[in-house]
Design a protein around this nucleic acid. Structure first.
Lengths: 221, 221
DNA sequence: GCTGTATTCAACGTTTTGGTTGAATGAAAG
DNA sequence: CTTTCATTCAACCAAAACGTTGAATACAGC
């Protein structure tokens, strides 16, 4: 005879499905990429440095939890975030982690080696200063992610190219770099590199997904 | 030699700790009780129908994820929610689950057998109507949870007592019942029972934790 | 001190999850 | 129709999570 679970138990069981889906670093990383836009399986596998089969299995788990959608596109299967509310969940997770997990506090502190000047720029500040032409907005994500949506007027120089293309940046204005999210390494590294090269550089507080979620304008080119 | 993980990986690993903590129905149920107020271990074990040792281990896992705090109080250890933002996370989880998981949709639909009249009352509606004396607010949670905080003016009749104490309720006004959260079974059952007894009964959309989180007034007696 | 009660710990077997490998499927291109 | 490539599936082992048991710890009351 099968176990009979109360409706209450069944609901908790379903919620736990979502929790478990968020309970593995590889899946969180995949979600981070998916928050930037649509990606194929092998695309994600490469980005997360996972085997394709493993990536596929993780994606299926995310799909079973209702967090991502998949659609066939010729030979490829393109995955996307199923629900923007997931960004709220992840933001709450980060908030709790930062407040209550010492390891997280330490890790974030060690990123912020430059201290003072590296305090992040809030989104609404950037909006105002960008409109007044006071800053250069720099998107340091890979070109494909930039193409799928970015802050209006932002210049795209993927982090790996920053060193070689640094001459394209104006020296007279502050540079505000952003990437995938508030904890994305790319913009931390970019700001460090830019400051080392003599620029006045700051990080945007959040990444593009949060910017979009806040209802701020995003363009596709 | 130990595995060296990048800071990015380490951060995801930490977040996954929180995800995993939310990845088990028993822990979600414990959090649901804890959202009502402080509870001892055996208290929680009884409520969730778990062994004490098992409950203790789950609580420690929640603590390691920074979701709950523990304090000694004589012989007892009292656990509480560590962060109100957890309520935001759980709300987002419920939202996603309801939209994307068929099982959840079905379970919620089967609760709402009475359909039409059982649409839940939004919190701000209740505030207005309670102020104007148009409704009776009924808290159907156990007395200990009511004692730790409830909606001002609410009458407490735990669900198990409802049948025997139903005469205490005024027949001329609508009754709005609430309990632990938007998916808490207690108020669903209460409303069904009240309607069967001829009352005009509705459910509050959310439970007390969400009411408190929304900044609405809560009293302790 | 001793006793009773609440909680945690350690050890154990069981179940579930994670990751790999190699084969199977589905669609496009020749 | 065969080849090719992206993805999924199935089988397998290794690792982690669950739950129980019985012992250990912590505190209150005597």
């Amino acid at each position: 005879m099968a176990k009979t679970a109360s409706p209450k138990q069944q609901l908790f069981e379903q919620l736990a499905l979502i929790g478990r889906a968020l309970g593995h670093s590889a899946r969180l990383e995949l979600l981070d990429y998916l928050a930037q836009g649509e990606h194929s399986v092998e695309d994600l596998a490469r980005a997360a440095r996972l085997s394709v089969a493993n990536t596929s299995k993780h994606l299926q788990q995310l799909r079973a939890a209702g967090l991502v959608d998949a659609r066939r596109d010729g030979k490829y299967v393109r995955y996307t975030l199923a629900d923007e509310r997931l960004l709220d969940m992840l933001a709450a997770m980060r908030g709790i982690a930062r407040t209550h997990l010492d390891t997280v506090r330490d890790l974030l502190a060690s990123y912020l080696q430059g201290r003072d000047g590296l305090e992040p720029v809030p989104a609404h500040d950037l909006m105002r200063r960008a409109r007044d032409g006071l800053v250069t907005v720099l998107d340091v994500r890979p070109a494909e992610e930039y193409a799928q949506g970015h802050i209006p007027g932002a210049l795209n120089i993927p982090l790996e190219r920053l060193r070689e293309r640094i001459a394209e940046l104006p020296v007279d204005r502050q540079i505000v770099a952003y990437c995938r999210g508030p904890w994305c390494v790319l913009s931390f590294d970019a700001v460090a590199g830019l400051r080392a090269a003599g620029f006045d550089a700051r990080r945007l507080e959040d990444g593009l997904p949060e910017w979009r979620r806040a209802g701020l304008p995003v363009v596709r080119e």
